[in-house]
Design a protein around this nucleic acid. Structure first.
Length: 294
DNA sequence: AAGTAGTCCAACCGCCGGAGC
DNA sequence: CGCTCCGGCGGTTGGACTACT
């Protein structure tokens, strides 16, 4: 007995979003905040299902979305994170400011998996491929007869490195672009009504200096992310700080002083990888991976 | 120029887990 | 405890676009 669809499909729009729909959704969320996705379309006057609205917002309309090419730094981090976490795209995305899980997933499938294969590395296991013939995946040919019923059944091959699904502890990763200009939490609703610019055409303008006001409701933002950049410059990818969300939530957060915490993350990871095969070292590596999940 | 093959990515789907009752 | 609701996640698809022949 399957679950009922998240909403009635009758009369609902599907496919690409129009500019008008985007505008309606954005304005609604600016006023009412995220959440209540099921009832949102009706309240906002959209003929979309709640899931579709949420997806559109999360993957495209959120003000902190960074559009544009993935940088080599991000590229590298994605590969390393994937080696640690597997296809946990949302977790990986949580480490990359302004990137969505969908974007990273797409990027992985279209670029990075090929890149790794061309380098003789299995993109699933991150181990060297022995058989050169494995370096080229089968040609992807669309088969319109492929039944969707066949998909998603036992399709958990992504658990390559995580044979046993690891428990992800709250708070979930969220992204913050700046200590002085918080961006939207991936998982939280909040009051948009103050601190939001009325500049409808410029989403990033919503997060200008005015939101740094300590008196604004954003200051009560409890769940925090891991990546904090000091700079709004979208090209400055080294300027993020990794913080433990629990530290922030407990009010004990102190900004990390280094400028290259992404690199520190790499280095820490690489050091652990270079360690031998001792059981203790595996424990360390596991602990490191777990620390990324917390 | 036209047809075909390949690429890219927004959007959809089904499943899962937590919260609430 | 079991059920339902809801939000979130990851896999997959459809179709627009680009490259190639």
């Amino acid at each position: 007995m399957g679950r009922a669809p998240c909403c009635s499909k009758v009369g609902l729009h599907r496919g690409p979003w129009t500019a008008r729909e985007d505008s309606v959704l954005t304005k609604y969320i600016q006023v009412h905040g995220e959440g209540n996705w099921r009832s949102l379309p009706k309240k906002a006057g959209l003929l979309r299902c709640g899931k579709s609205c949420r997806l559109r917002w999360m993957n495209y309309l959120r003000p902190d979305i960074k559009r544009g090419n993935i940088t080599p730094d991000e590229d590298d981090l994605i590969i390393k994170m994937h080696a640690l976490l597997g296809n946990r795209w949302s977790l990986i995305a949580g480490r990359l400011p302004g990137r969505t899980d969908n974007e990273i997933k797409n990027y992985w499938n279209t670029h990075l998996s090929k890149k790794l294969r061309s380098q003789g590395t299995d993109p699933n296991t991150h181990k060297k491929l022995r058989d050169p013939s494995e370096q080229e995946p089968p040609k992807k040919r669309r088969n319109s007869s492929t039944s969707k019923k066949q998909k998603n059944k036992g399709n958990k091959s992504n658990e390559v490195l995580l044979t046993e699904k690891q428990k992800v502890h709250a708070p979930k990763p969220t992204r913050i672009k700046s200590l002085t200009s918080f961006s939207v939490s991936r998982n939280n609703s909040f009051d948009w009504t103050s601190g939001c610019s009325s500049n409808e055409g410029d989403h990033r303008g919503l997060f200008g200096a005015e939101v740094a006001d300590i008196n604004n409701p954003w200051s009560n933002f409890k769940e925090v992310g891991f990546l904090i950049g000091e700079d709004q410059d979208p090209d400055d990818h080294d300027n993020h700080h990794l913080v433990n969300g629990s530290d922030f939530a407990c009010g004990s957060f102190v900004p990390m002083g280094g400028d290259n915490n992404l690199e520190k993350l790499y280095e820490e990871y690489l050091q652990l990888l270079e360690i031998g095969d001792h059981d203790d070292d595996h424990v360390q590596l596991d602990s490191f991976a777990e620390s990324l999940l917390i």
